[in-house]
């Protein structure tokens, strides 16, 4: 009873901590934006505009008020779920983000599943067959994944499969030009197309997806594989594995239950970071493939100094990371009996 109470109380304190982090991020981005560009009116009126026009624009944007008042107004808007209006699209930032979210979610979900699975398998095989040919190959590929920037991998894939071999479609987004989106149910184009029986659309969507998926999955695979291999090697060297061996447990049990459950802990931590990275739109991958997701939106916003959009994106990413790490803490306590929340 008291344990239960203590647990919910500590979960509560984590939630408060998470809110503080989000507030900190919001405050930081707000003031950073003001420092970088104290008078953004220059971005929206022509340099020849007269002072009256400028003042009018400033008043409209609320920039004539003291900074602290602007800050309080901004926080008030956030609480009401209003992220401001993007100057480049003319739409509320919230609507922009929501309309781009499905593209990011679709790419990120598939990449996470594939990247994580392959990473875990390669890491385990490398550790169990330490020093063997599979281990060396796995490590070589892993290092490549860690060292090569994602935009480079993406561009190389495009060059090979689109330009040279001509077997992959060009980087034009989720569907080739001329195809109409299937009716939206899940927001995942491939699945929506299958649900409505549009096989050709699903196939085309899969082809569009292939290269960005490989690029992002590769970026996810590498850190996972490295973490799994290191953790698994450590586990195989641990005293409890020696005990299990001496007690005559089958090697399968020792590797895939006794060692693997201990490996889960560092992998969960790594996974949390990777999930945050993928769901906040893997800016560079989306940029290279013109993938109409959150990352692409952030990239455009930065190029156009669209501050409301940038702040909206940063807030989204902050909340995402905070939620993922909060879930990680809860999960950790379930896997490792030594951890008490």
């Amino acid at each position: 009873m008291s344990a239960l109470f203590g647990r919910s109380r500590s979960v509560l304190s984590r939630l408060v901590g998470a809110l503080v982090v989000v507030l900190g991020v919001v405050t930081l981005t707000f003031f950073l934006a003001r420092v970088v560009s104290p008078d953004p009116t220059n971005l929206y009126v022509s340099p020849q505009a007269d002072q009256a026009t400028r003042d009018q624009v400033r008043a409209m944007m609320g920039l004539d008020k003291p900074v602290l008042e602007q800050y309080v107004t901004y926080l008030g808007q956030l609480v009401r779920g209003d992220l401001g209006t993007s100057f480049s699209t003319g739409q509320p930032v919230r609507d922009d983000l929501l309309s781009r979210l499905p593209a990011t979610l679709e790419l990120a979900t598939y990449s996470l599943i594939i990247g994580t699975l392959v990473g875990v398998v390669v890491g385990i095989v490398g550790a169990v067959r330490r020093g063997g040919i599979l281990d060396h190959t796995g490590r070589f590929v892993t290092v490549a994944g860690l060292a090569l920037p994602q935009f480079f991998v993406g561009l190389m894939l495009l060059w090979i499969f689109f330009v040279v071999l001509g077997i992959a479609p060009g980087p034009v987004g989720r569907l080739p030009v001329g195809l109409v989106d299937p009716p939206q149910t899940t927001g995942f184009v491939v699945i929506d197309a299958l649900l409505s029986g549009q096989w050709a659309v699903a196939g085309a969507a899969l082809q569009q997806l292939a290269l960005p998926l490989i690029t992002l999955a590769f970026a996810i695979f590498a850190p996972i594989a490295r973490t799994v291999r290191t953790a698994m090697l450590e586990a195989l060297d641990a005293d409890y594995v020696r005990t299990a061996t001496a007690m005559g447990l089958p090697q399968r049990t020792i590797h895939y239950r006794y060692a693997l459950k201990n490996v889960l802990l560092p992998v969960l931590t790594m996974l949390a970071g990777v999930i945050g990275f993928a769901f906040s739109g893997a800016v560079l991958v989306e940029g290279v493939f013109a993938w109409p997701g959150i990352g692409q939106y952030a990239l455009d916003a930065i190029q156009q100094s669209d501050f409301a959009a940038i702040q909206g994106f940063v807030l989204y990413a902050a909340v995402l990371y905070v939620v993922v790490y909060l879930l990680l803490d809860l999960l950790y306590a379930r896997v490792d009996p030594r951890v008490r929340l």
């Binding site: 005293d239 299990a244 001496a246 459950k261």
Partner: peptide, 14 residues
């Protein structure tokens, strides 16, 4: 059978 020293470390923590 083998009994190790430092039994706490010799048992699987999870």
């Amino acid at each position: 059978s083998l009994v190790f020293q430092d039994a706490r470390a010799a048992l699987n923590p999870v």
